[in-house]
Design a protein around this nucleic acid. Sequence first.
DNA 1: AGATTTCAAACGATCGTTTGAATTAAGCAT
DNA 2: ATGCTTAATTCAAACGATCGTTTGAAATCT
Lengths: 221, 221
Amino acid sequence: MTTRPSTQETRERLLAAALEAFGQRDYDAVSTRELATAAGVNLAAISYHFGGKHGLYLATARLLGERMRALLHEDLSWIRSTYADASPEECRRLVGDLIGRLASRLLGDEFGRHVPGLIIREQGRPTEAFEILYETLFGPVHHVLGELIGRARNRPADDDEIRVIAHALIGQAVIFRAGRTALLRYMDREGFDEGDLVHIRRVVAALAESALATPGEGAQR
Amino acid sequence: MTTRPSTQETRERLLAAALEAFGQRDYDAVSTRELATAAGVNLAAISYHFGGKHGLYLATARLLGERMRALLHEDLSWIRSTYADASPEECRRLVGDLIGRLASRLLGDEFGRHVPGLIIREQGRPTEAFEILYETLFGPVHHVLGELIGRARNRPADDDEIRVIAHALIGQAVIFRAGRTALLRYMDREGFDEGDLVHIRRVVAALAESALATPGEGAQR
DNA sequence: AGATTTCAAACGATCGTTTGAATTAAGCAT
DNA sequence: ATGCTTAATTCAAACGATCGTTTGAAATCT
């Protein structure tokens, strides 16, 4: 009863191959022939189904955005339902937890393999894909962090200082993927095992939490 | 007295154009013709002087590394000469100062325009250029931060936890370039002026400093 | 049957590099 | 200085390879 036998599968195969390729290499460094071969489909399928390489790229960004939204949904929505009547101390703890979790996820699993490559690359030369990825990933994290940190410091979430802090803390997590190679070298390792990830998650969480422990300069102005 | 560009000038022009181009776009996204045109030299000069596009790329990485070394030299060597007999509190302050300075530099001036693009891109697919850049940039900062944080927490600088913390704090600075576009959007701005930079530098410095204020979990093990 | 999807082949454009002649700089005998 | 030789550098043009895309016929499905 397959109403669309191979049409959908061709699309999915191409998207999977594109996610793998665009996730770790630049747009221009990925060729359509390579994508078609990796996906096991004909070269012309890219133009046929996505209107061209760029269309496939955008579709990949959308796919990635949706997956991220699903992955982050439980974490973020739980936090969102919590912080409304949480104490500043609890908010601090939530921030640390979120940052630590983000760091180990980015470093460790499937989650982190593709996301930052695409996202960080989009920062340099933003295309339409940036909008897609910001709204599903950077944006929600920015927003939730802003709320939490605002509460932790008794300041409005849209305060400039709060936003700078939120961004800086995200950096604590992102660097574990963006600077992964440098970290491997710094820590003299060939890869990170489960124990490393747990350790890193704890350390980063504690670091982010204590970063908010002392009131910022804005408080005593 | 027709001033034909001398040998050296041709090289320098190409390097300048390459730094500009490779600093913000991917290797494959930059064409040799574009570089030659931007530099105002003949296309064949790339092969003649650098042995090809890849040679020019590596030479660019070397040039960038040297400039970074010069830029960081005063900061780092001053710190190096200081921390030997500095108190943990002073070390904390030095860390905050360094991270804040790094953040505003990366975000603001010429320093930041080219570095992270090249470096972060090299993390995904490390080439020989990664070695060059790690040794002149990431490496020294890692090292100095490790020493400072180690002293601040009374632990050896080569401790795993210290290294994770050092890396995370670097992330606080790097994100201001790597995630610049997202930050602009988050803060609803079109660019950052001098006031923004000063503010960001202060906030990030205070954040990093207070992150080290509470003893890590390793201390009470 | 008619519409949709796949396929091998080819298209023009652009890529990095090479070529060989033209131009410039430098050394040297006169 | 002057002419001549030689090496170094620049230049326009062309090379083969690969790029993204298009084509029109074959295959498949409704």
